[in-house]
């Protein structure tokens, strides 16, 4: 086993534990936990047995496993970035609505007095 594999496996195990921990704290739902569980288990499998995906990687036009991992990592990061951006925008919109409604509610209260 080479150094990079040890780092990847350690990272995968810690992330898997962290996902489980979030599930136990009821921050993740069962669906969210299953999503992350499958993702990290797949990551650990590839880290343990890199040769198992070599034929597919060659078919995709990558010469090395590491190139494939980096490309996939960048794609995943961008997906998460987009998801986070959308969540933040939605939250911003909801907070704005709430704050504005509260301000207007005070106007109605004063008017009714």
């Amino acid at each position: 086993m080479i150094g990079i594999q040890i780092i990847a496996i350690t990272f995968g195990l810690v992330s898997l534990y962290f996902s489980y921990y979030q599930y136990r704290r009821r921050i993740f739902t069962i669906k969210e936990f299953l999503f992350w569980f499958i993702l990290w288990t797949g990551f650990l499998f590839v880290s343990f047995f890199p040769q198992s995906v070599s034929p597919y990687i060659k078919n995709l036009g990558f010469s090395r496993l590491m190139d494939f991992v980096i490309v996939i990592a960048v794609v995943v990061i961008f997906c998460i970035l987009l998801h986070n951006y959308l969540v933040v925008r939605r939250l911003e919109h909801r907070i704005e609505q709430l704050v504005r409604e509260l301000a207007l509610k005070n106007l109605k209260v004063e008017k009714d007095r």
Binding site: I95, E96, V99, R100, L102, A103, L104, N106, L107, K108, E110, K111
Partner: peptide, 26 residues
């Protein structure tokens, strides 16, 4: 003046919207 307060800073566009809706209410 009639004063409406935002609990957090939402910037000008939102303040104008709140003010307009209050004006329509009145």
């Amino acid at each position: 003046a009639i004063v409406l307060k935002h609990l957090i800073n939402l910037k000008k566009a939102a303040a104008l919207k709140t003010g307009t809706e209050a004006a329509l209410e009145r």
